[in-house]
Structures are given as C-alpha cells and as structure tokens.
C-alpha cells in the first residue's frame, strides 16, 4: 500500500507539481504586499492616506492660508496646481462647504482623505468656539503617546479573515484536485484493473490514493504558515491553525474522492467539485463558525468555538476514513 503512496508522491515531485505550487505560493507571498495594497485600496481608498501631498484652495470663509477668489481657485484647479477647491459659506454659524475634486477616482480618494482630515480639524476648532465638547482621548503605548496608523483594522481583518482562510481553502482544493486526478487517471487509463489484480485490497488502494494528497497538503500548509510568519504576520496559534486547516483538507479530499469514484471521469468530477466550492466560498470566508475562518482566527489568537472545531475535525477525518467504503474503487 505504501508503494502506491510513494509512487503517487514520487510522480508528484517528478512532474514538478510540487515545485510549481511552491513557486506559486512564494510568488503570491512575494507580491502579497502589492495584492494586499491593491485590494485594500479597492475596498477602502482612505487607506491611501497621502495627507501631505494634496493642495487645496479655499474660497469664501478663509480657515487656512491658501485662500483665493473663486475665479483664481477654479483656474488653479483647472491647471492642476491645486487638487481641490473648497467653497465655504456661512449660514447661522454653520459653515457649508462645497468640495470640488477631480472625477478621477484614485486622485479623488487621495484628495478627499486630506480634505476630510482638514475639515474635521476645522470642525473641532469651531466646536471649541461654540462650547460643544470634542472627544478627548489619547492613545499610549507604555508611557509614550502614539498615533494609530490609518487602516490598521482593515489590514488586520484582511490578512486574518480573508487571506489566511483563502490560503487554507486553496490548499484543500489543490489536494482534492489531486485526488480527483489521481483516481480518475487510474480509472480512465484502466490501470485500476491492474492494481486490483495485485494482492492489494480495494480499501488499501483507496486509502493510498487519499494519503498522498494529505501528506502533500500538510507540507504545503506548514510552508504557507512559515512564509506568513517570515512576512511578519504573527501566527498566534500555529498548531491549532494547522490542525483545522488539515481537517478542511480531509473534508475536501473525501468529497473529491467520492466524486472521482462516482463519476469515473475527471472532467465531470472537477467541474461539479469546482461549482460546489465556488458556491460555498462566500459562506466559508464570512461565517464565524466556518472552519476556514477558524484557521484565520486561530492564527490571530482570537477565540474560536472549540466544540464546532472539534466536531468538524472528527467528522471530516471520519468521512475520509469511511469514503473508501461509501464509494468502492473496485465497483467502478
């Protein structure tokens, strides 16, 4: 039986699959800062926060130094020498501000971040004048006052609640893809008949078919956890994250195996498996009780529902163990 596992693993390494996946992960990890930056930028352009680089012209109530008449301000805006024009009017003590920004989204996001900060400070100053209290709250790290970097929470949630769950799901999908390929290849090339004629029992053949992807994905999971740690992403509970990630793989590999044996051809098994995974992906990355989210939460050091995690893990590995009995490889 171990001979088949060894053969499958050897084939895997010889066919450069392992190398290509490692390269893929290294590449994704390598450009993860660019991808993270781009995705966060899409989701929350405030994250750009290039406060210092914008120039504004104020018209009307002058509350900063760069004040102009309307025509000059619009001329400066048209020529690109200012990024925004603020037209301020007073009505019963309330300042109404029309903010004119370029319709270019990236530029507008950059300018608006600055304008937002500027006008918030203006608002706080006016509140002091009108006797309206501002929120007085200072942040300290030890005895030193610090400023919280803008977008810290968005970046944190992106890494632990999206990136890590997706890495875990991708590993499981790759392992399931491997079992589908490996089983269907034996069935479609009829080499399964040769294997069945050997002293190996159908159960042993099935178990060996699901063992190699499990070994492969355990190495892969350890590798991406290590790469994340090297990228200065704190992994608070690596063993728990690893264990839950492996149980997701066990569940997906079982599904892959069952579909491969039932359909007997790679095309249908892969297609149906892909559709199911694509459909369940939103649930897998958005729910507190999702095992993929639990991997991210364990890595973040956040609390997880251990009962659900334990039930899922036991059920997944049990399904993996009984799948050779549910779909018998000799009955194809």
């Amino acid at each position: 039986m171990f001979e088949i596992v060894k053969k499958d693993l050897k084939l895997m390494f010889r066919e450069r699959t392992f190398v290509s996946i490692v390269l893929l992960i290294v590449f994704v990890a390598g450009i993860s800062s660019v991808v993270t930056f781009g995705l966060i930028l899409l989701y929350n352009p405030d994250y750009l926060g290039f406060y210092g680089s914008s120039k504004v012209a104020v018209v009307g109530e002058c509350f900063i130094e760069s004040c102009y008449d309307e025509r000059t301000a619009m001329k400066l805006f048209k020529s690109g020498r200012v990024d925004a024009v603020l037209i301020v009017s007073d009505f019963n003590g309330i300042k109404y501000v029309d903010v004119i920004v370029p319709d270019d989204e990236i530029k507008a996001a950059q300018v608006l971040s600055y304008v937002k900060k500027l006008l918030t400070e203006y608002e706080e100053g006016l509140r002091d004048v009108y006797g309206v209290p501002n929120l007085e709250l200072k942040v300290y790290s030890g005895s030193r006052e610090v400023e919280i970097p803008s977008g810290s929470s968005t970046v944190f949630k992106f890494i632990y609640l999206i990136l890590i769950p997706l890495l875990s799901i991708t590993t499981a999908v790759v392992a399931a893809g491997m079992v589908i390929d490996s089983v269907c290849e034996e069935i479609q090339s009829r080499s399964i008949e040769v294997l069945l004629s050997t002293p190996l029992t159908p159960f042993k053949i099935s178990i060996s078919k699901i063992t190699s992807p499990m070994i492969f994905s355990s190495l892969l999971t350890a590798l991406w956890l290590l790469l994340l740690a090297l990228n200065k992403v704190d992994i608070a509970n690596p063993l728990l994250a690893f264990a839950i990630s492996m149980s997701i793989t066990a569940f997906f590999v079982s599904l892959g195996y069952l579909m491969a044996v039932r359909f007997g051809d790679r095309e249908r098994a892969q297609l149906i498996f892909s559709i199911l995974v694509a459909g369940s992906l939103p649930l897998l990355v958005t729910k507190y009780a999702s095992p993929a989210v639990m991997v991210g939460r364990a890595a973040a050091g956040a609390e997880i529902d251990l009962t659900i995690a334990a039930i899922f893990s036991v059920a997944s590995f049990a399904l993996l163990a009984v799948s050779p009995f549910i779909a018998k490889i000799d009955k194809v």
Binding site: I94, K95, V101, D103, V132
Partner: peptide
Amino acid sequence: LAHPVKVSVVYLD
C-alpha cells in the same frame, strides 16, 4: 451645532 461644518462633494473633470 454638533456639526458646525457641513460638506458636499462635487466631482469634476
């Protein structure tokens, strides 16, 4: 008076 500054954003080319 809680919000003594009020803003409206206009996007222009």
